[in-house]
Amino acid sequence: MAGFDKVVSSYEEAMAGLEDGMTVISGGFGLCGIAENLISEIKRKGTKELTFVSNNCGVDDFGLGVLLPNRQIKKIVASYVGENAEFERQMMSGELEVELTPQGTLAEKMRAGGAGIPAFFTATGYGTPVAEGKEEREINGRMYILEPAITGDFAIVKAWKADRYGNLVFRKTARNFNPLAATAGKITVVEVEEIVEPGELDPDHIHTPGIYVNRVILGTFEKRIEQRTVRPAQS
């Protein structure tokens, strides 16, 4: 790597520096737009006691779910954690700490973390278990709770295209939490389907500027579909 060139050539290099006990912010919604191969690399490395911040925790054999059997995840901050038997077992037995966080609050926590905003007030969760232990304040006649921002030691992101400088373009709903995760990692690692030369992406069409990105790696993806729903083709 030289100058602004963020491209790395091995997954080992991509996840270098990840250590036991670190916090990792992950993009993706369900299995859509997840950094499949970066997750596999974390599994291979065997890093433990990790805290993940991710909307979901994958399924039993795909996504973050693959890190569960070896007990690599200590805690997860997520909005929805169904569809995963091993997850449920570890959560019920207390082996895995789960902090359920409303989806919009989770996205905003990442955004705020990446933007240097330490906390924000929101009406979401007021009067619910989410508000327990949090500061409450009345603003213009409505009650709000104070939600702290989140930053991570690492962020793992899946984008469609990157240039060598780490400018990113996402594709369809695989965007989801990825641009937010990208801003909130001390080291942001992005896995992409295509790498182009700087200048090839239209600056007006870049979703995430390269300033947020530390490493880019070219991957191949399974892109597993969680709920395959179709309508019959018109005859």
Partner: peptide, 14 residues
């Protein structure tokens, strides 16, 4: 049943 609120808390508050 402990699967999480997803976006429901944001939707009802917003």
């Amino acid at each position: 049943l402990i699967k999480g609120m997803g976006g429901a808390m944001d939707l009802v508050a917003g």
